[in-house]
Structures are given as C-alpha cells and as structure tokens.
Simulated scan of single mutants.
Amino acid sequence: MASIDYYFGTISPWSYLAGSRLEEIAQKHGASITYKPLDLLQLFDRTGGVRPASRHPSRMEYRAQELPRWADHLGLPLNLKPAHWPVNMAPSSYAVIAAQQAGGGDLAGLVQGFLRACWAEERDISDDAVIREILAAHGFDAGLADSGLFVGAETYGRNLEQAVEVGAFGSPFYVVRDSGQRFWGQDRLDFLDRHLASL
C-alpha cells in the first residue's frame, strides 16, 4: 500500500481548491495519507520562495485571476480577499495534528473544514471558538484544541524540517513515500493519480 505525505498550510488557497480529490485518489488506489500541516511562510523562507506580501505585483495580479478561475472550474466558492487572512496557522495546525493522533473522526473533513472556513466562510481559523466548532463538526473532541498544544507544537516544527528535507517548497505538496515522487499543487493531482496506478 502506497503512503502519501501531504504537506500543507491551513491558510493555503491552493490546498483549499484541492477539495477532497486527494482522499478520493488515495481511496481509489488503497493508499494512506499522513497529514503534515506546517508553517507555510517559514517554508517559503527556507526554500527560496517569496511570501505573498513581498511578491511582485504582476505575480499577485495573476494570482488574483487564477484563483477565481480554478474555483469556478472546480465549482467551489471562494472569497479572493477573506476577512481573516493571513492569520496564525499554528492553532488550526495543532488541532489537525492532535486529531490525527487521536483518531475517531473525519480527518480529511477537518482539514478541508479549516481551509473552507478561511476561504469561503469568512471565519478566523486562529480563533479558539472556531477551532473547537470545526473539531466538533467533524467528530472530534473539541478539547483537542487545548490538550494537543504541546504535541502539536513539537510536530508542527518537525513537519517543517521534514518538508525541507524531502524537497517540499509549497502547498499543497504531496510526496509518495514509497517512490520518492513529489507533486506540487492541486493541479498535479491527476499526475499523482497516474503515478499511484503505476505502482
């Protein structure tokens, strides 16, 4: 069974646009997914990327065209300028890490729930009440928002180091552990699908 490491930032619009396609592909091929939320801005800093606030206007103008194009193509609602962006990714990331360790709920739904809250629902995913609500909505104990802080912080930092080590540099970033093949971006999911079919 193939194993996919999924590196992402909980405020990444491109991870939001991936929707449930990763999970559908993994299920189709009997592959497992390990969710690895990380500090996306630090990943940019560590791997030669540029934070959005510092990007050239032409790049940001193109982004402002491309995101709505993809959202329309995929049939997903998108607010190009969400009320709560950027926000601190750590609290929602800690919640994902704690939920993955605890099990028992819909982890894929939780991840998408945070992304959707940011990009389609105008909610602040760094707010404790929002985090608790999204945890509970996906079958997890809302108390994980508190109890998972220590392990979450430790794993969050480790995820960043691992991302740099395996050559990840953006979000979403998918690494097939068995083959070492890397796929950057929600627009590369078809290639991931084809790769898993070849294993």
Score class of each variant (00 low, 15 high):
Pro86Ala: 00
Pro57Trp: 02
Leu199Ala: 11
Ser92Asp: 11
Trp70Lys: 02
Asp141His: 04
Ala168Arg: 00
Tyr156Pro: 03
Asn79Pro: 02
Leu40Pro: 06
Gly103Tyr: 01
Phe140Trp: 06
Met89Lys: 04
Asp178Trp: 11
Ala117Val: 05
Met1Phe: 01
Glu161Gly: 00
Leu43Ala: 10
Met1Pro: 12
Ala102Tyr: 09
Tyr94Asn: 07
Gly148Thr: 04
Leu144Met: 08
Ala90His: 06
Arg116Asp: 13
Gly157Tyr: 03
Arg46Ala: 15
Tyr174Pro: 05
Leu160Pro: 03
Val176Phe: 07
Gln112Lys: 03
Ala26Asn: 13
Asp178Thr: 11
Asp106Met: 02
Asp106Pro: 05
Glu161Trp: 04
Glu61Pro: 09
Ile25Glu: 13
Leu76Gln: 15
Ile134Pro: 02
Val164Trp: 09
Phe150Asn: 14
Phe114Leu: 09
Ala136Asp: 09
Leu110Asn: 06
Thr10Ser: 13
Pro57Ala: 11
Ala2Ser: 15
Ile125Asp: 07
Ile131Ala: 04
Ser126Tyr: 01
Ala64Glu: 15
Arg51His: 13
Val151Gln: 14
Gly143Trp: 13
Gly180Pro: 09
Tyr35Pro: 12
Ala31Met: 10
Thr155Gln: 10
Asn79Lys: 09
Ser147His: 13
Trp85His: 13
Arg177Glu: 13
Leu74His: 00
Gln181Arg: 14
Met60Trp: 07
Pro57Lys: 09
Phe183Pro: 05
Pro57Asp: 14
Gly180Asp: 11
Gly9His: 03
Gly170Arg: 00
Gly19Pro: 10
Phe183Lys: 03
His84Pro: 07
Phe44Met: 12
Leu149Ser: 05
Asp45Gly: 08
Asp106Leu: 07
Val176Met: 10
Asp39Arg: 05
Leu135Asp: 04
His138Trp: 07
Leu199Lys: 10
Tyr35Phe: 15
Trp14Met: 10
Gly30Met: 08
Gly103Gln: 06
Ile11Cys: 02
Leu40Met: 15
Ala53Leu: 09
Phe173Tyr: 15
Gln27Cys: 13
Ile97Met: 05
Ser147Met: 10
Thr155Glu: 08
Tyr16Gln: 04
Leu115Ala: 06
Asn159Phe: 09
Gly152Asn: 07
Tyr35Ile: 10
Ala108Phe: 03
Ala31Ile: 10
Ala145Thr: 01
Asp187Ser: 12
Asp5His: 13
Arg116Met: 02
Ala153Ser: 14
Pro68Gln: 12
Val111Tyr: 04
Ile33Leu: 11
Leu76Trp: 01
Arg63Thr: 11
Gly19Phe: 05
Asp127Trp: 08
Leu160Thr: 01
